[in-house]
């Protein structure tokens, strides 16, 4: 029953170029269309689940997604049970239908990796593109600044 994520994305800040393409492709991946232009013209354009950290006058940038922690505080803090671990992949997934937007997960996530959705109704978090197979942020990073690592020793 001990379940952990099988994959995790690690950012490489030395080569993150702050282009935000990870966010752009994340939006596409969760937009329900396959066309970027369409996705961006949608009124209910999803918010990105990856966050590019940047700071004025400072050259380091990096992109951060949910770490899919081994000891996930967000699941423990969730008041509805919406936040859960997927049994097949070990990814931490939020069931947006069940989320009521109390943001307890945001209060406890030590990575600040959980965001409110654009409409403020539910949590928007990285699902490692569970339906697509591979995370689009990793695949589309032009400088390979995101590395998807397969994790071993899964119980």
């Amino acid at each position: 029953m001990e379940l952990k994520t099988k994959k995790r994305i690690y950012p490489k800040e030395d080569v993150c170029i702050g282009c935000h393409l990870c966010e752009i492709y994340c939006i596409l991946a969760h937009s329900g269309t396959r066309d970027l232009i369409k996705a961006f013209k949608k009124l209910d354009k999803p918010s990105p689940r990856v966050l590019v950290e940047e700071k004025d006058g400072y050259y380091i940038t990096f992109a951060l997604q949910c770490r899919h922690c081994d000891d996930p505080l967000c699941i423990k803090a969730c008041i509805t049970g919406a936040m859960h671990r997927d049994e097949n992949t070990g990814y931490i997934i939020c069931d947006e239908e069940r989320c009521v937007g109390c943001w307890s997960c945001i209060l406890v996530c030590p990575y600040g990796a959980i965001r409110r959705s654009e409409d403020g109704k539910a949590v928007s978090k990285c699902d490692l593109c569970i339906e697509k197979g591979n995370p689009v942020c990793v695949e589309n990073c032009p400088n390979e600044a995101l590395e998807l690592k397969e994790l071993e020793d899964l119980a």
């Binding site: 943001w103 030590p110 600040g112």
Partner: peptide, 13 residues
Amino acid sequence: SIDRTGMIVDLIK
């Protein structure tokens, strides 16, 4: 102004 508050909780912890 609550985005990423968990990071501050983590600093306390």
